[in-house]
Simulated scan of single mutants.
Amino acid sequence: MQIASIDTIVLRVPFTVGGVSAAGVWGGAGLQAADSLLLRVTTDDGIVGWGESFGFIGIPMVKAALDELLAPACLGMDATQPEALGLDLQRRFHVFGRGGAMMYGLSALDIALWDICGKAAGLPLYRLLGGTRREQLPAYASLIRYADREAIAANTQRAIADGYRSVKLHEVDLAVIRAARAAAGPDIEITLDVNCPWSLAEAIDMARALAPLSLRWLEEPLWPPENYAGLAALRRQCGIAVAAGENASTLMDFHQMLGAGAVDVIQPSPAKMGGISALRKVFALAEAHNTQVMIHTFYDGPGLLASIHATAALGDARAMIEWRYFDMEARVLGDAVVPRDGMIRVPDGPGLGIDPDPEVIRRYQVG
């Protein structure tokens, strides 16, 4: 079964977020649309697999890496060997980077090939990864950054009203974070992703100030994100579980992070770090280091599906699915996996289980 064609599809879907978003690492203030990059891989016998790269403002770079380098190198290759093909491409193109656009493109390709493998076998992806007894998984509402006390309180309460028992903030202002905790009350779990803003000394001071708020974890507190020794030092001193990993690109990055004792929760991002082939190895590494895996999933297409299947098959009983809590004008997967009462269904169709909605692609494709 050979790869016959590879197509990159860029979507731009408008959304609202219950107010005005503040600037963040994903884009400027007032963000009103989510850009995503889908990958369609078709085999010579007509099986179509779907992948997804991490998106937002980095899409043009990833699209160029796929269109100009990776896709031409894949034509005619065996579509049923995602891990071997991915490793070959990494070795062939490593001089152009072991992270960023190149790895994002490889991640989308790997997810699409696993989708093909599942469809060819007539099995859902979680079965290829070892099976699951769970038909649904808990989800947490991942909010955008508001940098406003009233907005964060209102949207925290809105997520709770929608059935979520866990909410992730992306705030960096203490007053705003405190407003979210006050709005949530003591029984709702809150996690905090600050996107790598602080030195070690600053992070220690902030962690002490955050201690009364009973966070489940503090995510990516240090700059630079690969300061694993600093994360380990913070973890020893701060009294809050430390989470990181969405910016790690290779298995060696995860090996070094876990070896340093840097995190309580490790967060591989399958649309950024090599797809399912790499993700399953991170689960094994984490188990050997007694560290929980909580997959980073700030996207809502095939990358989200890959995360659901991997969590269902390989995650522990406390593992959750990150749900990007946006009010999308349309969803690339339709309503099939929208959480209900804070739970998200594990698709049971072949491969990823759900293909992108062709009508959504037709209406929102921009490149």
Rank of each mutant, 00 (worst) to 15 (best):
N195D: 13
R236W: 07
E322Y: 04
R178C: 13
A284L: 13
E52H: 04
R158S: 13
A330S: 07
M103Y: 14
G18N: 07
P358T: 05
V242S: 00
V172R: 14
M102K: 02
T43V: 02
I144M: 15
P339A: 08
A243V: 02
A33L: 07
G76T: 07
E287I: 01
F283K: 10
A211I: 00
A336I: 05
D300L: 14
L222G: 09
L279Y: 05
A121Q: 02
S269C: 12
E202A: 00
R345C: 13
S214D: 15
V293Y: 14
I361W: 02
P224R: 03
Q292W: 13
H170Y: 01
F326H: 15
E83L: 11
N155V: 08
D187L: 09
V242C: 09
V167I: 13
D148I: 13
R165Q: 15
A243W: 14
L333M: 06
I47V: 14
I111R: 09
Q32C: 06
G351D: 02
D78P: 04
T132A: 11
A139N: 03
P224I: 09
S277W: 10
K272I: 04
A241F: 02
I295L: 11
V293G: 03
D348Q: 15
I361S: 01
A153L: 12
S21R: 13
